[in-house]
Design a protein around this nucleic acid. Structure first.
Length: 509
RNA sequence: GCUCCCAUCGUCUAGCCAGGUCAGGACGCCAGGUUUUCAUCCUGGUAACAGGGGUUCAAAUCCCCUUGGGAGUACCA
């Protein structure tokens, strides 16, 4: 179903993409796919001073990891390229000239220092300096010069910027798919720079020109852009272009306190704010990533999708396809959402327990090899994982729940010893060992049966016996059913652990 | 400061547009139950319409004000 729904995700490559950005990309993606439209990646690298090597690659890798795919972009190509604004540089001057010709923009020769000075002055007076209809009359710009003066400046190479001329005394009405209609008076706006003295356009110009040229139908971006919407609307009107529809997404807020979620919050509160680990090429500082911390991309995407949007049903778990099916901008909320790291873990747990034992075992095998340099068989891993996966939120947590399947106890939890190891324990355990030797089919069922009937026949306490036995086999008060544990580690190892344990505990007394 | 946006449990949120069920669900937390320990699991509980004024027979829902929060306020995006 071909149509002309086209959305873009337009990050600037100034560092790693944080999860707020991932969510913006996700909503764009969901919206596009739901509508059968196109998803475009455009790199907004008009600020050469903020370029960070590797950031562009990071952005693409992150989004790919999340399962967000582009139809057009710097890697995919497409009919509307190039998709990097630095490579479209030659386009922009003509558009800025066009605005000057039509009287919607003008040259300004004020230096950054002069303007800084004016801002400071205004600030001292508890006011804000605005480059607007009032002040523009007194500043060094082409509005206050005759053609010859302007020409002279340009020929002499006086540095200049091009500013948009905000119309006087008008109201700008805008429409937002999430917030409805809004109105702003033009007096409150300032004459933004469209074209910088370094020959590059600012975001405002490049963004509008490229959205137009790329035939973007819907601009879905973060709420931090809302204050520049009037300017953008004015720009479309000045060019005489049809506007796209706008949707400004609510922000992701800090889990505690207030404010926009930032990189610092992750460091401070101990959770990742970036999809992938990132090493800053300048400072060498490393920021942790969801991928490296053991999160599944599905879990992260699921969590992000529900932060600010809801399906209107009680469904919590969504595959990407289900999200695409269920998504609509109408169900995106207006207010900011505090980020909850705990819920992300819960989502990860949900995805982990839904893996088949074989899948999870395969992941764990890799983990064991990498972090413990251990090799166990796939069968063993599958069996172990099936017994303990309910207890873990991450693959790396499996070890804490299952190490005793692989390693015999070297020490015994003192609290448990005190509580469970009694005077008659050694004898009882030895008897149990001889019993275990005689179990024919060494699997959980028969093992349990044999032990239980012995306990019943001798009128012993189930809790007392089993917990003492657990102490010998595991070394602590943890783990799944003992029958299962013995089945996995096998008869020989079980016996060895029981008899070693008796020996160790008795020699300590 | 100024401009704009926003406002339901601690958190994410449903309900609001087309006023009329004890304001529903999830995470977290607490308690009880199952269990052979721990965890899981099951059951239950905790807890919210920011405040004030209107409109109305009736307001979480519509309107206004206050308060609170957020964003923007660069030759950054």
């Amino acid at each position: 179903m071909p149509n002309n729904i086209r959305v873009r995700f337009a990050p600037s490559p100034t560092g790693p993409l944080h999860i707020g950005g991932v969510r913006t990309a996700l909503y764009n993606y969901l919206f596009a796919k739901k509508a059968g439209g196109k998803m475009i990646l455009r790199i907004e690298d008009t600020d050469q001073t903020r370029f960070v090597p590797g950031a562009e690659q990071y952005i693409m890798e992150s989004l790919a990891w999340c399962g967000i795919q582009f139809d057009e972009g710097i890697a995919e190509g497409g009919a509307y390229g190039p998709y990097r604004q630095s490579e479209r540089q030659s386009n922009y001057a003509a558009y800025s000239d066009q605005l000057i010709q039509s009287g919607n923009a003008y040259y300004a020769f004020d230096t950054a220092e002069e303007l800084d000075e004016l801002r400071k002055l205004a600030e001292a007076d508890k006011k804000t300096f605005i480059y607007n209809a009032e002040t523009r009359k007194t500043l060094r710009n082409s509005l206050n010069m005759n053609d010859n003066e302007v020409k002279k400046h340009l020929e002499e190479g006086t540095p200049y910027v091009v500013r948009f001329m905000i119309p006087e005394n008008t109201s700008i009405s805008m429409n937002d798919l999430i917030r409805g209609s809004m109105t702003v008076k033009s007096e409150t706006l300032d004459d933004k720079v469209l074209f910088k003295s370094d020959g590059m356009p600012t975001y405002h110009l490049a963004n509008i020109v490229d959205d137009h040229l790329m035939e973007i139908s819907h601009v879905i971006r973060g709420e931090e852009w809302l204050p520049s919407l009037p300017l953008h609307v004015l720009l479309y009107e000045a060019f005489g272009w049809e506007k796209p529809q706008f949707a400004h997404l609510p922000l992701l807020l800090k889990p505690d306190g207030n404010g926009k979620l930032s990189k610092r919050d992750g460091d401070r509160l101990g959770f990742p704010v970036f999809p992938l680990q990132w090493k800053d090429p300048k400072t060498g500082e490393t920021s942790s990533g969801y991928r490296e911390n053991g999160y599944y991309p599905e879990a992260m995407v699921n969590m992000l999708a529900l932060l600010g949007w809801n399906p209107g049903s009680d469904q919590e778990l969504f595959s990407m396809d289900e999200l695409i099916e269920a998504f609509s901008l109408e169900r995106v909320g207006k207010s900011g959402s505090k980020f909850d790291p705990e819920k992300t873990k819960w989502f990860n747990h949900q995805y982990l327990i839904r893996k088949t034992d074989e899948e999870l075992a395969a992941e764990w095998l890799v983990w064991l090899k990498t972090f413990k340099n251990l090799d166990i068989t796939a069968n063993q891993a599958t069996k172990i994982v099936s017994l303990v996966k309910e207890r873990a939120q991450f693959v790396h947590e499996l070890w804490d729940e299952a190490y005793f399947f692989i390693e015999a106890p070297e020490s015994y939890d003192e609290k448990v010893v005190k509580k469970r190891w009694k005077a008659d324990s050694p004898e009882q355990m030895e008897t149990l060992a001889t019993l275990i030797e005689t179990v024919e089919d060494f699997t959980a069922g028969p093992i349990d049966e044999k032990i239980k009937s012995w306990i019943t026949e001798n009128e012993l306490s189930m809790g007392g016996i089993m917990n003492a036995l657990r102490l010998l086999l595991v070394g602590a008060a943890k783990g799944p059913h003992l029958g299962d544990i013995m089945e996995v580690i096998g008869r020989e190892a079980s016996l060895k652990r029981i008899r070693n344990g008796i020996k160790t505990l008795e020699s300590n007394n």
